[in-house]
Design a protein around this nucleic acid. Structure first.
Ligand code: NAD
Ligand code: NAD
Lengths: 246, 246
DNA sequence: ACGGGTTTGTGAAGCCGTGCACAAATCGCG
DNA sequence: CGCGATTTGTGCACGGCTTCACAAACCCGT
């Protein structure tokens, strides 16, 4: 509620953004979902949105939306809702998306090609700034307006393109070594597609995406549904968004 | 601890598996990670593993491992640890991976091709049993030993291939319609790569994978580290697996 | 047989997240 | 200007998850 909970030397630019004392991790992981929903709502022409409507669009409960947004300083108006444009700008500020972030893709194979050719990152605040591989046959290949560089040049590439995030799409055997080289080059955020645990120093963040794990979690519920549980297969009632897991 | 907490008509086959009263969702989402770690450990020749070692391999705390495994009926031996082979078989049982599960891939585009060509699912309990698209130009295309079929034939395909899980890799605009058709065809588990919220009836599970959201969460921490927080950038101490988020 | 070392399984405590329920605030309208 | 309708912001209670700490159980060498 307070507009300036802590003294800041001054608003950097654009919207007024109080530096938040501390944001619950659960809230952080939902902010991107709100942002995605808000962009849809904005494109539909709405200029304000209630917590109820935003909750429906994001697939959560409205109380959760209100509590999450209240953590950001709360620019909602009672009886009306939130200004969509303001909310978008504020969430983008908090997530650090006001400046476009450059990511490097390490391992331009099967999956790497798909990601490199994907045009959907631009509107979400990211640009693929480098394609990196170790295979001499791959180095030099051109994809769009990027050329695959060799991993030995990683430090120079990271510096030149101001890489903020490294995405690992190499085989498991190479993943740890690649992570080490990314860290050595100064990268402190890693998105890892290789199905393995990475060891990194303190101060470096890793997020893992393992599709087989997602399938296995689904398999568990499928399995559970099949056995004895009469509730699972029976009920086909309302068409509410029922999402399992995080 | 009890071997048969509830009466079952009889052990189906293989290992003795008590039907578990109820498994915490947080535990379920970690079992696949343990399984992945256990396969690595098994391949390294170890036949028993302590909760400490397994925890290290999976990137969690040992107490968590013990509590999770105790939920499954606890086949560990004090002073020794867990039998790797037994544990693998037991977790696979619980996750419903003793029978290979067939998945259908809907949307054989950029990302769909990458997934279809990925050979890593077989060892994790899954087989891609169908490739489905709506584009007549894509229908009939051959990838490996599969041929892309038309989405109008989805009910027949699901029945013929015993599809248990649908994977949506279509553009956002088509995702909801595809989900509806999957549900109509009898599929009750969906892995959704399209960045949107799906509405499904009760009894159907949806898991979403949105790469941009993962990047945005990383961006938040990166942003936070950059501003004021002197702890983040400073500390580069031990090489412990520090994974942010779920 | 027995004691020392090791590791499991779990009670208990604390923390975090969720959702309810309601007072406070704002708007529109008569 | 006042009133009813609407929606936010939040105190509070509850449940789930995590972590600690330790007794019980087990192996092995002597
Ligand atoms: N393809 C998929 O759909 C898919 C799905 C789930 C997970 N994955 C995981 O993603 C990763 C990549 O899968 P893929 O199918 O693209 O494999 P791939 O073999 O097609 O591509 C791997 C690429 O990494 C490069 N590489 C190898 N070692 C390297 C190193 N040290 N430094 C830089 N580059 C190196 C290779 O030259 C190759 O171009 C794997 O870990 C895989 O398990 C892939
Ligand atoms: N490619 C990536 O790396 C990437 C990354 C993140 C997210 N995604 C998401 O994954 C989805 C697919 O991305 P893509 O790059 O593969 O897109 P794409 O356009 O290359 O492929 C989409 C495919 O879906 C098919 N399709 C369209 N409507 C359909 C329908 N009603 N029924 C069946 N098939 C239909 C199209 O014919 C096409 O083959 C998108 O939602 C995208 O946002 C992709």
């Amino acid at each position: 509620m307070s507009q300036f909970p802590r003294g800041s030397t001054g608003p950097p630019d654009g919207v007024v953004v109080p530096d938040l004392p501390e944001l619950p991790e659960a809230t952080v992981s939902r902010l991107p979902e709100y942002l995605r929903a808000l962009h849809q709502i904005a494109q539909a022409g709405q200029d304000t949105v209630s917590s109820e409507a935003l909750a429906a669009a994001a697939g959560v409960k409205s109380a959760k939306v209100r509590k999450d947004l209240s953590q950001l300083g709360s620019y909602g108006t009672r009886g009306v809702g939130y200004e969509v444009a303001v909310l978008i700008e504020q969430i983008e500020q908090v997530l650090g998306l006001t400046q476009r972030r450059n990511v490097a893709l390490i391992g331009v194979g099967n999956l790497g090609h798909a990601l490199a050719g994907y045009g959907g990152f631009g509107s979400r605040g990211f640009r693929i700034g480098a394609l990196v591989d170790a295979d001499p046959a791959r180095v030099g290949e051109r994809l769009g307006d990027l050329v695959v560089t060799h991993i030995d040049e990683l430090p120079a590439t990271v510096a030149a393109e101001q890489i903020a995030i490294g995405v690992i799409t190499t085989p498991v055997v190479a993943a740890q070594a690649v992570a080490d080289r990314l860290v050595a080059a100064g990268v402190t955020s890693i998105l890892n597609f290789a199905p393995c645990v990475l060891s990194v120093p303190d101060g470096v963040d890793v997020r893992n995406v393992d599709l087989a794990i997602e399938l296995q979690i689904l398999s568990f519920h499928e399995h559970r549904r099949g056995r004895g549980d009469p509730d699972g297969a029976a009920a086909v009632r309302r068409a509410a968004p029922k999402v399992v897991g995080p």
